[in-house]
């Protein structure tokens, strides 16, 4: 089996490494496919469906999520066919009805000409979270802590700490905050304290013994120190002063 395949994306031929996804290959070649639940550092999940493309293999054409679909020899991909656009528009319509006041969603929807949800106004909601699970996956796969998880199912599904109370395992690293595509996670560093409101946690920040700035949560530094087996006091000085 050869290590590379040739596929067609939007009429142009590309060579790609076997095992890569359609989204990766498209992105590598400067073709923009919109995504929300995707992050290169985290396993693809396929929840937001925004990256849908139309693929043809033999006589069969269908809609697939490009973040998960592996490239294949002879595959024909259309990233912006009528059918793709129609589906993407409906997705944004649905997301806008859920997050009717969220700027990220509003802007993305507007890009596709969706300026207001197709559903009756009394049903519009004002969420910021689209339940893409990036925060949960980052906490599990990148940080290795799993302080939060997706709880409940269906329309009640949401990322949350266990028992909907303070996330006792959280180390305050803020990875969830950085990966969230819709700024649904509210985090603030103030007066030497970091608060992540969504998980009901607060952390004392470590003050650099040299320059005096607060540079990271103590709990996070302690977690890293133990994991990497570093000496006590290793993080007394911030990276800038080291």
């Amino acid at each position: 089996m050869s290590e590379t395949v040739t596929l067609t994306i939007d009429g142009k031929k590309y060579t790609a490494e076997r095992g890569r996804t359609v989204l990766q290959v498209a992105t590598d070649n400067g073709i923009r496919i919109p995504t929300l639940c995707h992050n290169e550092a985290i396993e693809p999940y396929g929840a937001c469906r925004l990256c849908v493309v139309e693929v043809t293999r033999g006589s069969r054409t269908r809609i697939v999520t490009s973040c998960l679909y592996p490239v294949e020899e002879g595959l024909i991909v259309q990233t912006a066919s009528d059918r793709v656009i129609r589906n993407r528009k409906m997705l944004l319509d649905l997301l806008l009805a859920r997050c009717s006041e969220n700027e990220v969603i509003k802007n993305l929807a507007a890009e596709y000409g969706v300026t207001q949800p197709s559903f009756r106004q009394e049903y519009w909601e004002k969420n910021d979270c689209i339940v893409c699970g990036l925060c949960v996956r980052a906490c599990e796969q990148v940080v290795g802590v799993s302080a939060i998880s997706l709880v409940n199912r269906g329309i009640s599904k949401e990322p949350a700490p266990p028992f909907l109370e303070k996330a006792t395992d959280c180390i305050g690293c803020g990875s969830c905050y950085y990966v969230c595509p819709t700024h649904a996670i509210k985090m603030e560093d103030k007066n030497g304290v970091r608060r992540i409101h969504n998980w009901k946690v607060e952390f004392k920040l470590k003050k650099c013994s040299k320059c005096g700035i607060y540079w990271a949560p103590e709990a996070q530094l302690e977690y890293i120190r133990r994991k990497a087996d570093l000496p006590v006091g290793f993080f007394d000085i911030c990276p800038n002063c080291r």
């Binding site: 396929g46 929840a47 937001c48 469906r49 409906m90 649905l94 997301l95 699970g133 409940n152 599904k157």
Partner: peptide, 9 residues
């Protein structure tokens, strides 16, 4: 299950 947008929403 609530995972994907088309189904859940």
């Amino acid at each position: 299950c609530g995972k994907c947008v088309p189904c859940r929403e």
